[in-house]
Amino acid sequence: MTITATTVALDSVVEAGDGALVSVPAGGRLRIVDLHGNQAVDTLFYDAHDIDNRYSAFDTIREQRAVFLTTGSRLISTRLDELAVITDDTCGRHDTVGGACSQESNVIRYGEFTRHQHACRQTFLRYGAQAGIGQRQLTHNINFFMNVPVTSTGGLTFEDGLSAPGKYVEVTASRDLFALISNCPQVNNPCNGWDPTPIQLLGWW
């Protein structure tokens, strides 16, 4: 990576289980680096000037006629605007069907003992608040680096990641955006290789 210090607008590490709210201006590039491999990064995008115009997982899937996200995927909003485009991807594919973990869905999937474990939707609410993003504004997110195979027989599973240390994905904003990020703390399934690890955020704008 040969980028001079002056062009780097963002360079920060997000610890496992922590999150971030990042303002990305139109044309800005946001790179998420999976520092240690197999780490799910739950991400939502909002039009920074109107948060009701937000990322729509299922409109994005329909418009590209494919379930998995990768380079070239246009991230579409509920109003069918293009919020961003995935412009680089060294992992290969990313999920947008599996949603974010929550304390409540953990109880359903794994049992009552998970009720008070930290979860992505706690992080979304905590970091989203400063942009007016509350429960009604949370929607179905992208899980960068997560492997959720969907099959022709209509099956869906969570499997070991395809990612590895240093793999990254980069999105270019098509308009001014908020990126709401939760570095997933889940320890009850293989989405984080059973061991959540830090990620790096890099931004150029």
Binding site: V97, G98, I108, L156
Partner: peptide, 18 residues
Amino acid sequence: RLDRLNIPDTLKSQMSAR
């Protein structure tokens, strides 16, 4: 009047894409 149908949670907890 706040708690909505959640498709991802419905699918992943029952291992189905339909």
